Computed example of a mutant assay.
Amino acid sequence: MWKCPKCGREFKNTEQDHFCVKPNSIDEYIAAQPEDVRPLLQSIRETIRAAAPEATEKISWQMPTFWQGENLVHFAAFKKHIGLYPGGEVTSKFAERLAGYKTSKGAIQLLLGKPIDYELITDIVRWRVNQEAKRSDTL
């Protein structure tokens, strides 16, 4: 067992990523991240905001989240990457453009130290907004 020296919580994995204090806002989340990652997170936030201007910002699953009728996209910082979580269908819909990324169902890893494709993020978020709008129209 590994014990966090800051908060005292115990984890099975050594150096387990976690929050010592749960963030209440995206600003708090970003402020709690390493200094070199904060500008990247802020740029991702601004990119998502521009692509989904009507979405509401919140923390869900302890991650920054944009909500518009449903969770459109989450993002989170990790030791070696930033995770983008736009949902299950995105990785198949954008498979060609995601060829150079590590993905799993509904998750995309943006490696730290490599350029971030903000145009790709914009396109994914706009697609998610359109999918949610279609879903809402059928309800």
Rank of each mutant, 00 (worst) to 15 (best):
R45C: 13
S136E: 10
T56L: 13
S92F: 03
L112G: 07
P86S: 12
Q109T: 14
P5V: 15
W67R: 06
W2F: 15
E57D: 04
T47M: 13
N71V: 02
N13G: 03
C4K: 06
L112I: 11
Q68H: 08
L41H: 06
G88A: 15
L98S: 08
A32F: 01
E28F: 03
K93D: 13
A99M: 09
P64D: 02
T14S: 14
L111Q: 13
I30K: 00
R49W: 08
D17E: 14
P5C: 13
I124L: 07
E70N: 04
E70T: 04
A76Q: 00
E70I: 02
I82A: 02
L98A: 10
A107G: 13
C20Y: 02
Y101D: 10
A95L: 10
Q68S: 04
P86E: 09
W2R: 05
G83C: 09
K6R: 07
E119L: 11
D27I: 02
F19V: 02
I48R: 02
V37F: 02
S60N: 08
A50F: 04
S104W: 03
A51C: 14
E35G: 04
N13E: 13
L111E: 12
G87C: 11
L120Y: 08
G113V: 11
V21S: 03
E54M: 10
Y101S: 10
E10F: 10
G69R: 01
I108C: 06
A52K: 04
R9S: 13
P39W: 07
S92T: 15
R97N: 12
L40T: 06
N24G: 11
Q33D: 01
D117Q: 09
A76K: 00
F11K: 09
I48G: 05
A99E: 15
V125P: 06
N130E: 13
K114Y: 05
N71T: 03
E119C: 05
L112R: 12
K12F: 04
I108D: 04
R38P: 07
